[in-house]
């Protein structure tokens, strides 16, 4: 058994440095407690709902979320709006459908099965409206950035006056967490920008945390069931491993050799 521990500690040693090897230009990100981290990590439902509010009232005016559907908002493991609420949310958007029997495209209120309506028709339109910069789709944004949730959370709070030696063009802002420090997005959040229905004080920090939580869910909608299944799977494997270990000892006791 001692040898086995050695073996597996070597495996872990081989793997861990690789996982950090891309973090060469890392800055210290702001830290906060994420409820979804850890073996039993789950989303904070209220935070997800507030996060959706921030997304839809602030981010969604420029950022699409094309892989999500309105039905996802009512699914277990997510913000878990009631089905009626999700239907109402969907219906508040105009969706282009068609062609109808006359061959015409038409608009109708959104349904649960519709994908999130995009703010721009295409990438070019998005670029034209944003000074040439494309606001990235947010569906998997958290997974598409090296620092993950900590990076997004920090970036939203990382706007500062540019230091004297940095000159900024028009429409470019200084953010201490952005790669290269220059960002085309103006600071999107300010205290009290949204009014939370549950009375939570909408500070920049609070909104950043809520919307980042929402983005984590949008990138990993099955995170909760993954954690739950993972715990069961690993406990099952450990029990089975112990049982097999003792059977192995028993079987090998017939020969005078060690296992």
């Amino acid at each position: 058994m001692k040898n086995l521990f050695k073996l597996f500690s070597i495996i872990i040693l081989i793997i861990t440095p690789n996982s950090n090897s891309f973090a060469a230009e890392k800055v210290e990100y702001l830290k906060t407690d994420w409820s979804f981290k850890g073996l039993f990590g789950k989303f904070d439902r209220a935070s997800l709902q507030r996060g959706y509010q921030v997304y839809t009232e602030v981010c969604a005016s420029c950022h699409s979320m094309k892989y999500l559907s309105y039905r996802n908002l009512a699914e277990p493991g997510g913000p878990e709006f009631s089905e009626a609420q999700a239907k109402a949310i969907a219906a508040s958007f105009e969706v282009t459908d068609g062609p109808n029997s006359d061959g015409e495209m038409f608009t109708r209120p959104g349904k649960l099965s519709d994908k999130f309506v995009m703010p721009y028709d295409n990438v070019k339109a998005a670029q034209a409206a944003n000074g040439g910069a494309y606001p990235p789709d947010m569906s998997v944004l958290v997974k598409a950035r090296g620092g993950g949730v900590d990076y997004i959370y920090s970036l939203l709070q990382g706007y500062e006056e540019a230091p004297n030696n940095v000159s900024l063009d028009d429409g470019v802002y200084y953010n201490k967490y952005m790669y290269g420090n220059k960002i085309r997005m103006a600071a999107p959040l300010s205290d009290g920008l949204v009014e939370y229905g549950d009375g939570t004080n909408a500070t920049v920090e609070q909104m950043s945390k809520d919307v980042t939580t929402f983005l984590m869910w949008s990138a990993e909608p099955h995170l909760e069931s993954r954690h739950q299944m993972g715990f069961k799977a690993i406990v099952y494997l450990i029990i089975l491993t112990v049982l097999v270990y003792f059977s192995m000892k028993r079987i090998w006791s017939r020969v005078e050799s060690e296992v």
Binding site: I12, T241, M248
Partner: peptide, 30 residues
Amino acid sequence: VIKDGFALLMFMIVFAFFVFYAPNILGHAD
């Protein structure tokens, strides 16, 4: 068979850890 099975189960625990708790750590964010 039983010894390989035992080692395989140990290996599967490491495997499961990555799949369930760090599924993207070995990939690249880009």
